[in-house]
Design a protein around this nucleic acid. Structure first.
Lengths: 243, 243
DNA sequence: CGCGATTTGTGCGCCGGTTCACAAACACCT
DNA sequence: AGGTGTTTGTGAACCGGCGCACAAATCGCG
């Protein structure tokens, strides 16, 4: 799923349920190890929907309702949730608060996770000030840039730091996630520095392919490419500007 | 130019054209209709790599080299390109300039495509000023916002317009693609307005699920969710904070 | 002109993911 | 307590995409 690397790695290791047998009615913990990739990618969306419903005062929700709100089919949602364990009551639905907790646990968001942001241009500033991180279990914890003129500037209560500070800041927080919002020309060098500093997961917004060690996970978000894909779909359905 | 290859441009190999030459407004062109989804999603990345190589003065490239640069396996790249037709010369590789032209054609980027941007907050500004759109066949053509205070403001040479102007601006350009960078609370209303104005493809940056007619295509980019997915992978590989 | 080196194009088996359809489980009502 | 209606959980078939491996095609060279 990560387009920037041949998805050869990350097969599911065969160490399965050590202590949790297949049907523990109560916590004991979901089996994170053998969760399908596609399911994991949808959990954050479910989480958001569930939190939204919780805020609205609901206590339970059916797979049908949840699926509609999350933009998937009910069967898919049920199978996804079933991978977490048999939470949910037949004839009734799912306990929202409980499910929220479970998904947060699986996603590793039980405790707030610190994120570093490298490259404080337009996009970096937008991300630093992005208000969509509330309730996501994530928090932008440090900003970095290579340009001396930007260093020291305060954005949203955080100072822009020199890249030289990266190692000790990463170690201190500690930080394991980072987002790269530099120009493409700088992205690979920044990635290298992040990796040596100990960051193990990178979200790359720069329009280029990053080379990283096998142990580091990279996801790529490319704004131009997303639009180009849309352009293709458009072109496919309406070959000439028929409208 | 590659020796012994017909000039790129209006000359198309007639091999498969008789099998299904339907629906492409262009004689013998690539069969856009039955192009696998996954392949189409990778074409923009290939396109970028190819343009990069072309700028560097290269004229041909092997599947091995291209694949490495694009972060995929060579077999996958070859199969992807084979869906466009049998361009490429065995024992030699692919003609870069020709391939660029073909992919642009398939993606519908032969002519510059106009994109509308709705919601001129931090993220919207970043996108409006984003320099990664050069050579993508896309151009931000109009900016819209609901806030009267922002209307008239110039960003990157473009004025911020009122949403009321949307219908005639969309019709005039014309515009079929739009990106939504409003808060989640406004996104659905904006989407509705876009659809009625005639926009048929939407890139949604707001953290919510949009409901649109069947005929409209929506892609979603959610910054928080991307990070949450990374968090999961991280959590899976390093269950307890190996921090 | 033929031979070896190189690289494309693709048939095939495999695998993860999606969908369908239904039995099992539970709540509620009488 | 038992019957009824609702909703979950999941087995099984299906589908699309991926990687392997190799034949086919082309080039360069002696």
């Amino acid at each position: 799923m990560s387009p920037s690397r041949p998805m050869a790695g990350t097969c599911y290791p065969p160490f399965r349920s050590l202590m949790n047998s297949h049907r523990t009615g109560l916590p004991g913990g979901p089996r994170v190890q053998d969760l399908p990739e596609a399911t994991a990618a949808r959990l954050p969306e479910y989480l958001r929907v569930l939190q939204h419903l919780a805020d609205a005062g609901h206590e339970t929700a059916s797979s049908e309702g949840l699926a509609a709100a999350a933009g998937v089919t009910s069967a898919k949602l049920r199978k996804d949730l079933s991978h977490l364990g048999s939470y949910g009551t037949r004839g009734v639905g799912y306990d929202i608060a409980f499910l929220v907790r479970q998904i947060e646990l699986v996603l590793g968001l039980a405790r707030l996770r610190a994120v570093a942001l490298v490259g404080i241009g337009n996009l970096g500033r937008a991300l630093a000030g992005y208000d969509g991180f509330t309730n996501t279990g994530l928090r932008i914890a440090a900003l970095f840039d290579a340009d001396p003129n930007r260093i020291g500037e305060m954005i949203n209560g955080l100072p822009v730091r020199s890249l030289d500070d990266l190692p000790w800041v990463v170690a201190e927080e500690p930080i394991s996630l980072a987002a790269i919002t530099t120009p493409a020309s700088a992205a690979q060098a920044v990635a290298n520095q992040l990796v040596t500093a100990g960051v193990t997961s990178i979200l790359n917004f720069a329009p280029c392919v990053l080379a990283v060690p096998e142990s580091v996970d990279v996801r790529k978000v490319d704004l131009a490419i997303e639009l180009q894909i849309l352009s293709f779909q458009e072109h496919r359905r309406r070959p000439e500007g028929a409208r």
